[in-house]
């Protein structure tokens, strides 16, 4: 009897799972970006075009999944939260070039691949948050290693892509030896072991556990809009580092088309939609990111933080130094 039950169950399972959605007008997205950030965009896209958007969200492992799925992968579009992931997808030959004048004209040259394999959708700054009790400060990433901040610096894990990208940019600027030394000194300045998200660091400043933290720009806006987190954000200033020299470290969120995308036309339509003025405005207004398209205004709040100078380092260089950055982080035992 159990055997029969077992067999019946298995057959049922096959029927339930076997026929994944295969309607004609749809586009499949693998997204590193979180649901609440991109779902409003997809809703608007579906309203405009009637094309259904199917999504899988994951923080990690998308590239690996895509590689395993190979030519039968249902994925059309890949959304990432940083440049290294995009380059990784291209280097593993998991994406295809998209030749679209809409995309290439809307996005500044340094924020798209020369071979059209990836496109940035928004930019974000790696800011330094500082406690209001310190007063207004002018700070560089290099200053995080300064003795005067001993025991007063907080950051998330060194292994997080945002931190790794920053370290990679330090390598480009200063070389490996300097960067390793810098990492060791920053580690010495930490108030606690690297932990939590960018928001948790601002909370720690609010708690007076530290004075200085690293965090992406849009989190500041997100926190100010959250009832619980507003009190944390009210305790800090958002600073754009290295304004008197190379400029603040920039990362991007971006998009690429999967190599074996089954719905190429719809995928391209979605990519073009994501750089359109309404979509870019949505990124700016609800996510408080910097839109990639020139002429789309940042949100009022973001505008109030003032303009800033961005590091001109080519994004591909950041991706190139990623593995070295990881090794240095291990060598400095940054997370331990």
């Amino acid at each position: 009897m159990f055997k029969k039950l077992f067999i019946t169950l298995f057959i049922a399972l096959f029927f339930i799972t076997g026929f994944s959605a295969n309607a004609s007008e749809e586009v499949n997205v693998y997204s590193y970006r979180q649901p609440f950030l991109v779902e409003p965009l997809f809703t608007q896209f579906t309203e405009q075009t009637g094309i259904k958007v199917n999504v899988v969200f994951a923080k990690e492992g998308m590239a690996e999944r895509l590689a395993r799925e190979g030519k039968y992968s249902p994925a059309d579009i890949l959304l990432t939260t940083d440049i290294s992931r995009l380059i990784e997808l291209r280097d593993k030959d998991l994406v295809q070039a998209v030749n679209s004048s809409v995309l290439s004209s809307a996005i500044p040259k340094q924020y798209q691949a020369q071979d059209n394999t990836w496109f940035a959708l928004t930019t974000r700054v790696r800011n330094i948050y500082s406690a209001k009790r310190l007063g207004k400060i002018d700070i560089n990433y290099e200053d995080l290693a300064d003795e005067k901040y001993k025991g007063r610096v907080c950051t998330r894990s060194g292994k997080h892509p945002y931190t790794v990208a920053l370290v990679a940019s330090m390598i480009s600027e200063h070389g490996e030896t300097y960067t390793l030394d810098w990492l060791k000194k920053v580690k010495n300045n930490l108030a606690r072991k690297p932990q939590g998200s960018d928001r948790a660091q601002v909370q720690a400043i609010h708690q007076n556990l530290c004075d200085i933290s690293l965090g992406n720009s849009y989190y500041f806006g997100k926190m100010l809009k959250d009832d619980k987190q507003k009190v944390w954000a009210d305790e800090v200033y958002i600073n754009f580092p290295n304004q008197k020299n190379r400029g603040a470290h920039i990362n991007i969120s971006g998009v690429a088309m999967a190599k074996y995308a089954p719905n190429v036309k719809n995928a391209q339509a979605l990519m073009e939609f994501l750089v359109s003025k309404p979509a870019q405005a949505l990124y700016a207004q609800t996510n408080m990111e910097y839109p990639i398209r020139e002429g789309v205004a940042v949100s009022k709040l973001v505008a109030s933080w003032g303009s800033y100078k961005a590091d001109a380092l080519p994004l591909e260089d950041i991706a190139k130094n990623r593995k070295t950055a990881l090794k240095l982080l291990d060598q400095a035992q940054f997370d331990l």
Binding site: T17, A21, N54, V56, K59, G61, R65, R199, A200
Partner: peptide, 22 residues
Amino acid sequence: LLLRPFNFETLSSQIYQLISDE
């Protein structure tokens, strides 16, 4: 988290995402 098909969230995956953003 890694094996989800399209448009498929479970309670645990959803909560984990929220926790990682405090």
